[in-house]
């Protein structure tokens, strides 16, 4: 899903929160010898994946990283890693982003990074983080300047990736619906956030607590109607 893109995204700065700066971070940034060494190793690790001409880890470097970590580059954990780094541009990690992420994860070797991934996933899955991650995932896919929405096919992939494991049944149906309907060709942030809220709040499969007067995005009204028709 990490499509390559050459244009640099400048629009809508993502609202990834600053909750990564935990006390541990502050402690680590104290100039102890250990942390200096750790920083050095993180830099070295960056250099090993970096593209020399751009001073960034580019898609190729990410693929190399993935294979070293023994995860697929489309794995949700890579997206989570990007979230932890607050990576701005899809398919690229800058040194700053890399340092921010790895320092927070206390990983200065590829092995440590690998071991940190399950813990990272747990962190992301904690509710307030997950909302942030969900919104980050959308922003991360906006590659064009002033782009505000994402086409249906990409959204379906993203849905599966981000919500699929947690809300399997709903997400499957939602994807099915998105692919059959003709009213929407793209999905915007509001609708995307609505999907998460829907999965979190609406009891499935009876949908008993769904009330269209609650101001759900229209697309979800339509989705619910579509599901109810299927059920009856």
């Amino acid at each position: 899903m990490m499509r390559r893109s050459s244009t640099r995204k400048t629009g809508s700065q993502n609202s990834a929160s600053s909750m990564n700066s935990s006390p541990v971070d502050l402690f680590c940034s104290a100039s102890s010898k250990a942390s200096v060494k750790e920083l050095e190793r993180i830099d070295q690790l960056f250099n090993s994946y970096m593209n020399k001409s751009s001073d960034m880890i580019d898609p190729e470097g990410i693929e190399a990283l993935c294979s070293d970590l023994e995860v697929d580059h489309t794995d949700v954990r890579i997206l989570m890693l990007a979230w932890k780094m607050k990576a701005e541009k899809q398919g690229y990690f800058t040194l700053d982003e890399w340092k921010r992420g790895l320092k927070a994860l206390r990983a200065d070797t590829i092995n440590k990074l690998k071991k940190a991934l399950p813990e990272l996933e747990k962190e992301v899955r904690r509710p307030p983080n997950f909302v942030d991650f969900h919104s980050y995932a959308f922003q991360y896919c906006l590659t064009e300047e002033k782009q505000k929405s994402i086409d249906i096919d990409s959204i379906c992939e993203l849905l599966d990736l981000v919500l699929g494991s947690q809300f399997h049944a709903q997400v499957d149906l939602l994807i099915k619906y998105l692919k059959t309907q003709n009213d929407y060709k793209v999905i915007n942030m509001d609708q995307w956030m609505g999907f998460l809220r829907f999965c979190n709040e609406i009891s499935y499969p009876d949908l008993s607590n769904y009330d269209p007067d609650f101001g759900w995005p229209l697309i979800l009204d339509n989705f619910v109607e579509w599901m109810r028709e299927r059920q009856s």
Partner: peptide
């Protein structure tokens, strides 16, 4: 009402309105 909802969503997209972070039925 459906058209009104559409217009609200359009206004959200154009950042005239936003949904309340806590009570999501509020704009």
């Amino acid at each position: 009402p459906v058209v009104i909802k559409k217009r609200i969503e359009s206004l959200i997209e154009r950042e005239f309105l936003e949904r309340d972070k806590v009570d999501r039925k509020l704009y």
